[in-house]
């Protein structure tokens, strides 16, 4: 069990203490948030006894419900589209050679590097110009709202999805695809029955990442949102300006539980797939 490099005595104690402090630092705020979401006091930092009132208020507030619904709609639609596009981009970069591939490769990851605020301003400017052009050419008056939020979320999610899917593709033996073709599969069937089952964990991982990022995003969404379309994080952000109430705690806990369920789901999915490979 113990070897020459296993820490002993005070060293061991110090290391354990450090570990516990780090965990405390990570998780104490979360625990506090959950506890205070059940506090009956209107004052955020004061304990006023147990209550479910704030969850009730969340459920009863039309604006909050609208924001939650908008968040979910936007997250699901932008995830589906960015998973398809991101997977296609990953396949193109990993399986084919074409002119300008290096440039495409570099540009694809730009949204990961660019700061959110810059991206948000870019998007804001882009939609303003874009809508003007649409109006001038087709005579259709478009406004910021659902479409602009979804498009922005797709724009940054494609990069994340393709990074995750590419990692999976890179680990896959291309001989498997050749074997499928050799065994009378068409290119489509080779993808459907061999490539796709191999990269499903990557696609699922990318999708969960995309849905989480979409649900979480405040900065970009705030810039491109329009009247009538507010996502849950942006709604929370707005509430803070009016003064912090335990309602925010309750909404945060709901979002926290949602995110954690997604992460747990992805871990379970990975475990199931992993088991198949022994």
């Amino acid at each position: 069990m113990s070897s020459a490099v296993t820490p002993r005595g005070w060293t061991k104690f110090g290391l354990h203490l450090n570990g516990w402090l780090v965990y405390l630092f990570f998780y104490a705020p979360i625990v506090l948030l959950v506890i205070f979401s059940f506090s009956a006091s209107r004052n955020v930092g004061t304990w006023g006894g147990w209550t479910f009132e704030w969850y009730g208020e969340f459920a009863g507030t039309q604006n909050a419900r609208n924001a939650l619904e908008a968040s979910l709609k936007i997250a699901i639609i932008s995830t589906v589209i960015s998973v398809v596009l991101g997977t296609m981009a990953a396949l193109a970069l990993e399986r084919f050679t074409f002119r300008g591939k290096q440039v495409f490769d570099g540009l694809l990851y730009l949204p990961i590097i660019i700061p959110d605020v810059t991206m948000a301003v870019m998007m804001l400017l882009f939609f303003a110009e874009f809508f003007d052009v649409i109006n001038a050419v087709f005579g259709i008056q478009m406004r910021k709202g659902f479409n602009s939020i979804v498009l922005s979320h797709i724009a940054f999610n494609i990069s994340f999805v393709s990074v995750v899917v590419r990692a999976r593709l890179a680990g896959m033996d291309t001989k498997l695809e050749e074997a499928a073709l050799d065994l009378y599969a068409t290119r489509w069937k080779a993808f459907r029955y061999v490539t796709f089952p191999q990269i499903v964990p990557g696609i699922a991982g990318g999708a969960l990442l995309a849905i989480t990022l979409s649900l979480d995003d405040v900065v970009i969404t705030q810039f491109v949102a329009g009247p009538g379309w507010t996502t849950l994080p942006v709604y929370v952000f707005g509430l803070i300006r009016k003064g912090v109430t335990p309602l925010i705690n309750a909404i945060s806990v709901v979002m926290l539980v949602g995110s954690m369920s997604l992460v747990a789901l992805s871990l379970v999915a990975e475990r199931v797939r992993g088991g198949e490979h022994g």
């Binding site: 001989k175 498997l176 050749e178 074997a179 065994l183 061999v194 191999q198």
Partner: peptide
């Protein structure tokens, strides 16, 4: 024609 690949390339799934 059919091929027996080097390292077999069996479908792992």
């Amino acid at each position: 024609v059919n091929t027996v690949f080097q390292n077999y390339a069996l479908f792992p799934h």
